[in-house]
Design a protein around this nucleic acid. Structure first.
Length: 474
DNA sequence: TCTGGGGTCCTAGGACCC
DNA sequence: TCTGGGGTCCTAGGACCC
């Protein structure tokens, strides 16, 4: 049973129509007028609508096409994220000056734990006064932005409260009054209850929070699953003791894009994936991180969404590696009907980069110190189902097909295996051995291809000892 | 030419290990 | 030859959030 605090010491702050408000602040001619920020292209959606636009029925997540038909005279803007980030930093710093325990949820939203703020007490009057001061100071420091604030005994109730008097409001839920506030509300106020869950609950005759209170835990679990049912059972009684957590590590990094017209050209798709992989890798590297699992996302013309992933033996932050895995994953998908979205992501993040595995001497660049790699590699047939190579990135896909590319100098030991054939023999190559180089398949679309010097397997991997390869033209 | 982009979390099934 | 259970890792898809 959650142990809910006794004071209204959780603060939730939500900046009002944030992106649109920043635009109106920075461009006086937009003030008092409908402003819509979001994708302005044919497949764009609304990120934020100013209150003047909301009057006409424009909402977040609505297609821009529909927004334009509802409110043709609004200003449609693509957005200036650096400006939003800058304003967000000002707000988050203000909140952190209040309490060290600030949990940002996005650029425009955060929880603050006032129990860590060192206030004389946490009575309703005290926390209310603090919240009013914060709102006034925020208005001053941001050049006129406003925020809606909720104060309550839990994250859930504080968020419910901040929603009750938008924009520019402050609502305090006195400790003990939560259930009666919640009971008449629609089930969708509960976080995690979206369209699909709402529909399931509706079919079970459950509409208001009060209806949920009358349902047993077992019944809720049966309806919506273990995790969801358990949290529903607690939250409908306002039982929420989730702590405010200041720093949360990112678990994945991804880049995706929707294209104005459906893509049909595979080479173009590979080129786009390659570019996205480069962005992902750059963001990983900038954060001093690397990841083991590379994923792609493909949305087809009919909006069905596919994902494929492959997990490497060791983490990488290298663009050429992420790109090759991404392209290989795409190779298995039927995209003949056209593709509207492509994306690349890396997860399974580690706080260190792959090169650290090899003593930090680096195995990636020609200017790096030469690394001594082991000349013999033990391969355990039960553990190494696919190609294996020291100092190289190895990947196998969900069909058990393996391939390898070298990333250094010295010796690379490789074993190939395919879904159709038993494991091939283990072979060791010097990385400049033409027999290994035989595997490379330069990709004219990949600007990063030149980086990798040792080896790359073709899509169809031979499993027999290759006959001596001709020396490639140089 | 309905339906973005960046994330998180959950579920279910299969492989594998003990 | 047949039968097992638990735990972990991986993959694919889906729901949800801002």
């Amino acid at each position: 049973m959650p142990d809910v605090r006794a004071t209204a010491s959780v603060l939730h702050l939500d900046l009002d129509a944030f992106f649109a408000a920043v635009e109106q602040r920075d461009k006086p001619s937009l003030r008092g007028k409908p402003v819509v920020v979001g994708g302005t292209g044919g497949r764009g959606v609304v990120a934020t609508a100013s209150y003047e636009a909301r009057v006409h029925g424009v909402r977040s997540a609505m297609s821009t096409r529909e927004a334009r038909s509802r409110c043709p005279h609004a200003a449609y803007l693509a957005g200036r994220f650096p400006a939003y980030r800058e304003a967000s930093v000002v707000v988050m710093e203000l909140l952190r000056s209040l309490s060290p325990l600030v949990e940002p949820l996005s650029l425009d939203e955060a929880f603050v734990d006032l129990a860590a703020a060192g206030l004389p007490d946490l009575e309703v009057d005290t926390v209310t006064a603090v919240a009013q001061e914060v709102r006034a100071e925020l208005h001053r420091r941001t050049g006129g932005l406003t925020a809606s604030v909720g104060l309550a005994t839990s994250k859930f109730m504080a968020k419910v409260a901040s929603d009750l008097d938008k924009p520019d409001g402050l609502v305090v839920v006195p400790p003990g009054s939560e259930p009666e506030l919640l009971r008449p509300m629609h089930v969708s106020v509960i976080p995690g209850v979206g369209p699909a869950t709402t529909e399931r609950l509706r079919r079970a005759g459950l509409h208001q929070v009060a209806d949920l209170e009358r349902v047993s835990l077992e019944e809720l679990v049966r309806l919506v699953g273990r995790a969801h049912g358990t949290s529903l059972h607690e939250l409908c009684r306002a039982q929420d003791d989730r702590p405010v957590v200041a720093e949360r590590e990112a678990k994945s990094v991804s880049v995706e894009g929707t294209y104005e017209t459906d893509l049909t050209d595979r080479r173009l798709m590979e080129g786009l994936l390659t570019r996205q992989a480069g962005e992902v890798a750059a963001r990983l590297a900038a954060g001093g991180q690397s990841g083991r699992t590379v994923s792609i996302k493909v949305r087809l013309h009919d909006f069905t969404t596919l994902s494929r992933s492959a997990t490497l033996d060791s983490p990488t932050d290298r663009p050429a590696v992420v790109a090759r895995v991404a392209r290989a994953l795409l190779a298995d998908l039927d995209t003949s009907g056209g593709v509207r979205l492509l994306g690349v992501g890396v997860s399974g993040l580690a706080d260190w980069v792959q090169d650290d595995l090899f003593g930090g001497t680096g195995v990636t660049g020609v200017d790096e110190e030469v690394v001594d790699l082991p000349t013999e590699v033990p391969v355990d047939p039960r553990r190494h189902r696919t190609a294996w190579a020291p100092g190289a990135d190895v990947v196998h896909d969900h069909h058990g097909r393996g391939w390898v590319w070298g990333s250094g100098r010295g010796v690379v030991t490789v074993r190939f295996e395919t879904a159709e054939t038993p494991p091939g023999p283990v072979r060791s190559f010097a990385v400049d051995d033409p027999a290994l180089r035989h595997w490379t398949r330069p990709d004219p679309l990949d600007p990063a291809d030149g980086e990798t010097t040792a080896a790359e397997a073709p899509t169809a991997v031979p499993t027999e000892n290759p006959s001596p390869a001709p020396t490639p033209p140089s």
